[in-house]
Design a protein around this nucleic acid. Sequence first.
DNA 1: CAGATTATTATGTATATACATAAACACGAT
DNA 2: ATCGTGTTTATGTATATACATAATAATCTG
Lengths: 233, 233
Amino acid sequence: MTEDERKSWLTVQDEVRRLIRQRDWKPGELIPHEADLAREFGCARATVNRALRGLADAGLLERRRKAGTRVALNPVRRAEFSIPIIREEIEGKGQRFGYRIFLREMRVPPPDVQARLQLNVAQPILYLKTLYTADSRPYVFEERWINSIAVPDVLDADFEVLSPNEWLVREVAFDGGDFTFSGVAATAEEAAILTCRVGEGLLVLERTTRHGGLMITYVRLLFHPGYQIHTRC
Amino acid sequence: MTEDERKSWLTVQDEVRRLIRQRDWKPGELIPHEADLAREFGCARATVNRALRGLADAGLLERRRKAGTRVALNPVRRAEFSIPIIREEIEGKGQRFGYRIFLREMRVPPPDVQARLQLNVAQPILYLKTLYTADSRPYVFEERWINSIAVPDVLDADFEVLSPNEWLVREVAFDGGDFTFSGVAATAEEAAILTCRVGEGLLVLERTTRHGGLMITYVRLLFHPGYQIHTRC
DNA sequence: CAGATTATTATGTATATACATAAACACGAT
DNA sequence: ATCGTGTTTATGTATATACATAATAATCTG
């Protein structure tokens, strides 16, 4: 402890993590305040602050002014996953990326899609059905509605060069969105496109993407059988 | 601009976000370095650093030493979802929580579970089948393997009072884990337990939880038809 | 004694300064 | 030209200091 070893906020963070894991600091318990820890670790309060703030963000600690810092009662309860661009996901596995647009037309969206895109008039917008393939095998079937009123440029887009997915990522700066995971059984059409059995259990990812105040696009991704979304925390 | 308004790293962050959203700073483009921004915003470099670091963590910026900071090409979308305790999730919806343990026995796990739990000997461990209900209706069917070698106390646990889920959260400090989402079609047994049609598409969440170097538990959660995991970013 | 007021305290943020580090860039030798 | 080598530069981190803020604790007041 008397050594002048290299300090860093990561060292502090690891040590605190260790104390929590080993139950030296029990869930719900108040831990020493920053100034004390700084003295104990032989570093500045700012360094301790950086470390503890990180752990609080991660949900391991709960901090309140004046009240102090305590170990979270129920630890780690959030996980993060990244939403990859389909091409990158496939190429990242060393497979050949491809896609085929089955349908591209202007169509009046059904009420639920109208609601998701916050369209108040029943107006035709761009509708696309695309199959993305990995090594020529069905990977994910994408059904996409694009709010072509908000993004008129999309009507001139040549999706033969750039997939709808990538075109939008390139041309429109997204702000945020909603994601929904669910499971469904393949319909006859879906089974035909994904070349799987009718009724096979598939993972569905729906997302609605926002830019500024406008809803840009709603996508329903139907993954091939056996596909898994994986994340760790 | 000449005003002495209150500054903060959040103000800087918002302004940078705005510049990116409005495409004043385009994807892939290099932005001014911290010192310049600090002068421009009339604050210290540390403040700019805090703001930009946050945006980089969020995936909006990419930073490299000497190379500078640039707007991310693909606004790397990551979403975060919270892992609720089942009881809290159900009660949070104003429904009555219940559960029923169908099976509780020592059993040698199949090879894939053995691998997940990093067991190198085929040894019987605790195996549980539990149905969680919301207002008495099937909510999620849980199949759980508990590494009772690592957590011997679990053998004495009385799951009539506290569900296996909560018992583990209370008694074992988790370190992290793996999560996998997928979709499956209900088997005959699963359909019977969840009272749905055989072949119905269901969402599956598998998770393996770690504590220290040890794998504690592997769970497979099979949600009722129509269940969705929702998140936004 | 309830309710308002003030003091105290732990976290939150801002600042100037200093040095560490990674990586791009220029320069020189082979 | 190619390969290393050193310089430059932007980010990354650490520190002391100062003040802000929220929430608890103590005190005053009717």
